[in-house]
Write a protein that binds this DNA or RNA. Structure first.
Lengths: 201, 201, 201, 201
DNA sequence: TTTTAATCGAGACGGTACGTCTCGTCTTAAA
DNA sequence: TTTAAGACGAGACGTACCGTCTCGATTAAAA
């Protein structure tokens, strides 16, 4: 979120003394994303991003500690925009809709590819794991948890239901299928919701 | 294709004239595993394996196309030995036992660490993904599927149950928790089995 | 000659934008030379030069296509400095002095060792032979030839004397002795000049 | 081919149980020579010789300490056969004939190529230098010296003539031209003999 | 209007690991 | 016992990126 803080503080003070080049920032995020899609994670190199974005390596290192952070910037922005946690309506329906959107995000969205790549990289590198939790998994989980808690509070879900257990039981299979390259069909998602959320249905 | 001739003559004559050095093989598998545990996936380099195993790089490249294959060798051997698919008894109990063993394998076994690392690397590299399916995921899934099919055939599980959907719903949450560094407790596993396998309970 | 072009353009523009590190250059030339003297041509490896010069291999490959070019750089610089072709005075005396200097250069100077090593390597490798001609033998021969031509023009040497034949007859024995590890004494050089250059004496 | 020939001749002779195989020896010498001509010194590898001669590497290492010794074997045999030191007749004529033969040997004979390659390698490696002297240069020089000494003894050459100086003055230019890829014409050789051996002509 | 300070592109640098190559030694089984 | 076959430890090759660093040049605020 360093990026945003900088932008914010700049805006707050009403001036941009030695201002960051927004064009360069977007070119870098875009180049990293494109390289990931075109060549896979191994093809995402700082050297390659710099070349494609028409930017010097130093400009990248000035603003991001590593290429992981670049990908995380895109993931967070895109997931916030395209994978919203619903806030109104019946909770079970909201969850079903959210999980369908998650399946679509993982299968069809470039940022979904980033999510899988970062989850993969987190297995190799503790620092990536920490950042990934801090900037993506944990904030999102907080909002997902709030949704389920509302369902419990409103009596739509059983009082004894453990939100995190439930969320992992719902999200886990979808992500696992994405990780193993298996199609995540709508019936698969729906059956999951039926079994996990409505066991006495 | 001298190689094939050799293999052929070996098979034909039932002997192995220029036999592979088993000590070196074990030293290499062991070194790769140790490096993964000690330094993470990034610390597993062919150079490092060679140094630790007291072996030349050429000996590694002679027998394994890549370091992925080295890790897969260990994973397959260890999983076959320590993560057996049960073949007798009540199917639901067998599945529960298998999933508990899986949780333990992922949390405590060096080979479990390999499994997570390879699943991670599969997100970065299509060739790894293919190898991982071919040598680990697919053969194992075949045996897991057979277990559930027996449950259906014997009437213990509902006739309409889809084995692959069910298996992903069971394994997915456990693996997802392991991937995100969350503890996989025994109650978590048991609750999963209860909800997914006995929804009408 | 890339080296010289760079230096030239730098001088021309009066600045050095992404300037080559002169310290590194000298360390590399020195390390190559030292290794040749200490361990022979086989001991001159890019890896070894890099280690001794405290430089990365990439820095070497950035500026020199091969280790031959490194040795040639030193040879050309040192020969230009310490094995000058005389430009004034009586030609026969000048030649005698030059050949004595050549004998000394081959026997006592580190760069003389390089000359012999490159002449040796030229027997193994056509590219080395071409480079050796282009950067050392041919330019030097041009200046040697000019010296003899002056002698002919000024009447000090017979009009019918063929400069290249004469030069090979003078230089050949000295180089041959150096190549075969035979001492090249001053009387040997003087006798050579007497017989070859003053046959009617 | 070579392999089969060996097998065939062995079969023909019945067998050659525990003695050195002359066919293999010739195949090895021939293969080394061919590789030198076809691919240059760098292309002469023990691995390559073994493959071409249809022989195992071990067989080569059993009989020759290095590939240098293989080439020396060929050089010595061929030079003895095709570059004889004349033993009768007028000494000056004999020397002239010998030097013409030397020029031809260096330019046209495969073994001449070996001579230049070994002289080159002697610049890189002291052991090669020692072997080259011991097996080729020194014995030959002894016979060349004897020829000149006969000329002095018989009064055909001046009493004060130093044989080694003279020989280096004669052979040096021819070898130097060969080493630098310059044509060694018959007039060049003749002029050399005239100037060096008959200075008062 | 001039500083002045942080940006930017370019790219050299010391490193590490890659995957390939050839070396010379060692091991096996057949002839 | 010698052979062909070939596995082995060793180590150099030339390449790709890493992350750091120094240049000029640009540019916009502050002086």
């Amino acid at each position: 979120m360093a990026t945003k803080d900088i932008a914010a503080s700049r805006a707050a003070k009403g001036r941009a003394p030695h201002r960051r080049n927004e064009d360069a920032r977007l070119a870098i995020l875009g180049a990293a994303d494109e390289l990931l899609i075109e060549r896979g994670f191994g093809g995402v190199t700082v050297e390659g991003i710099a070349a494609r974005a028409g930017v010097s390596k130093q400009t990248i290192y000035r603003w991001w500690p590593s290429k992981i952070d670049i990908l995380l910037d895109t993931l967070v922005e895109e997931a916030d925009r395209r994978l919203k946690i619903p806030e109104d309506g019946a909770v079970v329906d909201a969850v079903r809709g959210y999980l369908r959107a998650l399946a679509r995000f993982l299968a069809k969205d470039d940022a979904g590819e980033i999510l899988l790549a970062l989850l993969g990289e987190a297995q190799h590198d503790a620092e990536t794991a920490a950042l990934f939790h801090e900037r993506y998994l944990d904030p999102r989980r907080a909002r997902e948890r709030a949704l389920l808690k509302r369902g419990i509070a409103e009596g739509e879900l059983p009082a004894g239901l453990n939100p995190d257990t439930t969320l992992d039981a719902l999200i886990g299979p979808i992500v696992y299928r994405a990780l193993t390259g298996t199609k995540v069909s709508r019936p698969f998602v729906d059956a999951l919701v039926d079994r996990v959320l409505e066991p006495t249905g």
